[in-house]
Structures are given as structure tokens and as C-alpha cells.
Computed example of a mutant assay.
Amino acid sequence: MSKETIKKVIDVIEKYEYTNLIVCGKKSAYIHEDVRDDAYKHARKYYHKLQKVPHFENLNDKIFKFATSFSTKDVSGLLRGLKKSIGSLVTPVSSGHGDIDLIIPGLHKASGIKILQKRWGIRNYESAAFGDSGNDLEMISTVQYGIAMENAQKMIKVASRYITQSNNEEGVLNAIDAILKNEEPFIS
């Protein structure tokens, strides 16, 4: 993202009442140094390279995404507001539990899968993807085995070819096992 885009996005986000903001780059992810300890520890689960910084301006990195956290009350309203205000710069998508990612338009999880498929010579009918939130939509719509978790958002279930159990019931492992054994509903 350009420095201008980064500044505009941060200016807009700061108008909202968020509980956390992480700026994600190629070298590291960045979080404000004043973040509460519990929020920092939670973020470390998802970002193994996470640096505290005094501000987000002039980071010496290529920035690819913003990750924000809000109260879960009105994520759909927040998504609409963010799309309206900065949708021409970034694509806001729900990533579950009140979290919203702001990504470069057209660079989503499906883009990554396409790169890996090309690199390793894997075809769509040999690919599976699992999802539960808005940031998984393109990915599960792209591959042969697009699988929603039982606890997925409604739009993900609608877009998926299959639905498996929740993570608590080992849904991913069960579906992978059934695919590899060519069992229902994954008979090819």
C-alpha cells in the first residue's frame, strides 16, 4: 500500500471506536505501544512477529493489511461504513469475533491459493479450503472442496459446497480424512 493509502485508512479507522489495530507488513505486524497487555498477548497468538511502535506513520515495511477489532454488536454496520468511506482503497472483510481486516483489493486468501497451486502444480479439484468468516469467502468459492465450518457465518455456508463440524468437533480433520478416503460427501 502506498503511504497515502496507509495514512487515509488510519485516519478513517481512528474515527471508529475500535479495541485494537494491527498494521501488517512483510517484515512484521505492528501494534501501538500503548496497547493493553491482554490485547497484546491475544494478538501474539495470530502474529508471531509483532512489534510495539509509538505510531504507524513511516514504518519501514511493505504494508499489506490492517486488522482491527471492534465490539461484535454491529460488525455488518461497521463493514458498510468502512466500505463507503475507504472501500476504494481497501476491502473490508469480517474475520470473525468482531474483527475486521482491511486488505488490498483483489489480494485475498484465494489469491494465495492460486499462487501455491501454480507453484506446486496443484489443480483446483485437488484443493480443499476451510472457512468460517467473510475473509474466507473467495477462498472457499475457488477450490473444488470449499468447506464451511458448522459455526460459520451464513454467507460462508451458502457459498460452500460442503459443511463440516465445528473446530471443537475436529471438523477440519474429519473432512480431510473423508476426502482422502473418497468418502461421502466427497466422492469424486
Rank of each mutant, 00 (worst) to 15 (best):
K65R: 15
I63Q: 02
T91P: 03
N60I: 00
S95P: 01
L116A: 11
S88F: 05
D101E: 15
P105M: 13
D34G: 15
I63K: 01
N58L: 06
L89S: 07
K83W: 10
I115R: 11
S95H: 02
S111R: 05
K118M: 08
K114V: 11
A29W: 01
K73F: 10
G87Y: 03
D34W: 04
I100A: 01
F64Q: 02
H108C: 04
V90S: 02
V93C: 06
I115M: 12
I63W: 00
G98E: 04
D99K: 12
E33N: 13
Y47T: 05
Y30H: 02
D37R: 12
H55N: 15
T72R: 14
H42G: 00
I122T: 10
H97Y: 14
V75F: 07
I86T: 05
G77F: 05
K41D: 12
K27H: 06
K114C: 07
T72G: 14
I113P: 03
K114M: 13
S94V: 08
K73A: 13
H32C: 09
V93Y: 00
A39E: 13
G106D: 03
R80T: 13
V35M: 13
Y40R: 03
Y46I: 07
I122D: 08
G87F: 03
L107H: 10
A29P: 03
H55G: 08
S76L: 01
Q51H: 10
R44V: 09
A67V: 06
R119L: 12
S95L: 05
K114F: 04
